[in-house]
Design a protein around this nucleic acid. Structure first.
Length: 265
DNA sequence: ATGGTGGTCCCACCA
């Protein structure tokens, strides 16, 4: 099964690119972020005419996530639960889960758009760290229930300096600050595998995002911030993980490109 | 300095 994550930066602006991509590259499951649509204004036919089941969690103007699947999807849930101790529900549409039924086995797919967090420090950074704590709590639950799962999407996290073309420029950024990296490392310490780095250890220069400004793509001034985290049972089924960087060279591209995971399930 | 979106007719917000 081929699963792709793609921050599209607006599904309406990316209609043609996503339509062509689904037909030509044909992921079994596509996990989208920044759809910037509500559940009502998402152009459903871009998915359904290409043969996909569509599950959205959107809001007006910003954020929004979706799961597109050629395989049946069961038990779709939206949003991350508040931590015990009582915050409120997340008002921003950033998280969706569904169980995708493979040919032999099922996998719980968690699609996420983690808050950017800039400027840091500040309330937006506090929100990012609180959101990461909620995500960690959800990962602990799924592990405790022994549900095979993966968490994928735009993490807005640079795990190490190797994941930025110019790490010194990012040193004070919310994507790279020590509390951000520690929160990401706590996820890994639960026993999750970061798929791309596990398949390509010690290889710099591989990015999933390039700023629109100042010729960043042409200079390969990129960031690797779109990730797959795999539970142990799913990590055992990984056969490949790649970045589709050529998508950034198309007309009217997103600033992110798809990242692909191949699973033997 | 680039782009998407939404509310107004150029500007603010977000990345």
């Amino acid at each position: 099964m081929k699963i792709a994550t793609f921050n599209v930066n607006g599904i309406k602006a990316r209609y043609g690119i996503v339509s062509d991509w689904l037909r030509e590259d044909a992921p079994d499951v596509a996990v989208l972020q920044e759809i910037k649509s509500t559940d009502e204004t998402f152009p459903r036919e871009v998915a359904e005419d290409a043969g996909y089941e569509l599950h959205t969690h959107g809001q007006k103007g910003f954020n929004g996530v979706a799961i597109l699947s050629k395989r049946p999807v069961e038990d779709v849930t939206r949003g991350l639960a508040p931590l015990p101790g009582g915050e409120e529900d997340d008002e921003q549409a950033r998280y969706i889960e569904g169980t995708v039924i493979g040919e032999r086995d099922a996998v719980r797919i968690c699609g996420l758009y983690l808050p950017n967090g800039n400027p840091a420090p500040g309330p937006k950074y506090d929100y990012k760290l609180a959101w990461m704590a909620r995500l960690e709590a959800r990962a602990r639950e799924l592990l405790a229930q022994e549900i095979p799962f993966l968490m994928t999407g735009d993490y807005n996290v640079l795990p190490t300096d190797m994941d930025a073309a110019r790490p010194q420029v990012m040193a004070e950024d919310a994507l790279a600050l020590p509390p951000t990296r520690r929160a990401f490392q706590r996820l890994l310490n639960l026993g999750l595998t970061e798929a791309f780095r596990a398949r390509h250890p010690g290889q710099p220069g591989h990015y999933s995002y390039w700023d629109y400004q100042a010729g960043a793509f042409e200079r390969n001034h990129g960031l690797r911030i779109d990730h797959f985290l795999l539970s142990p049972a799913i990590a055992d089924r990984m056969t490949d993980c790649t970045i589709q960087s050529d998508m950034r060279a198309r007309q009217k591209p997103s600033d992110h490109v798809p990242v692909w995971l191949d699973l033997d399930i």
